[in-house]
């Protein structure tokens, strides 16, 4: 009797794709790089604390970029920091994600005009997956952003989209 003919009726077996399992495992253990740049970092820490407890989503702060999946850019990115931030991003193992938290890292925030030392948006040096507006965003906003990031990981696939013929690849 083949495996496919067997009835899985004992309730302990779930059938899914390998991709689905891997994505599910990854989105439930997105480890973050633990560094903060300004006041947004306070809200980021509040998200880790008992009220919001972001750790229930499998978010662990890691001290090394080698062990991280996500970089939360929480705060004002100065030009001096931007060079270091880019290096940290390059040290992360793929797949890697960037969450831009707060107005400063989104677009320069209050320093957009006179901040000669501020990078006007962290997306000028690293690709950003999720932007969280706010100055600073509440922990709830960070959690919401995290849900959106999880959506992105959930839909991650190595398969090309349907309808794209092999010969059409650039």
């Amino acid at each position: 009797m083949g495996l496919l003919d067997k009835q899985f009726d004992d309730g302990n077996i779930v059938i899914t794709s390998v991709e689905g399992v891997l994505n599910w495992a990854r989105l439930c253990s997105l480890w973050q790089m633990s560094f903060g740049l300004a006041c947004c970092a306070i809200e980021m820490m509040a998200a880790s604390a008992s009220h919001n407890d972001i750790m229930r989503f499998g978010v662990l702060p890691r001290p090394s970029p080698r062990q991280c999946d996500v970089m939360i850019v929480a705060g004002t990115v100065t030009l001096k920091m931007a060079t270091r931030l880019k290096r940290l991003y390059e040290q992360m193992a793929e797949p890697r994600y960037v969450v831009s938290m707060g107005s400063c890292s989104n677009c320069g925030g209050p320093y957009w005009e006179h901040g000669y030392h501020v990078l006007k948006g962290v997306d000028r040096v690293v690709p950003v997956d999720v932007y969280i507006p706010g100055c600073p965003p509440r922990p709830e906003a960070l959690l919401e952003g995290w849900m959106r990031l999880q959506d992105k990981v959930r839909d991650f696939t190595l398969v090309k989209e349907k309808g794209e013929a092999v010969g059409e690849r650039a």
Partner: peptide, 9 residues
């Protein structure tokens, strides 16, 4: 520019 990064908004 500073080190290839655009500075103005």
């Amino acid at each position: 520019f500073y080190l290839g990064m655009k500075v103005p908004y």
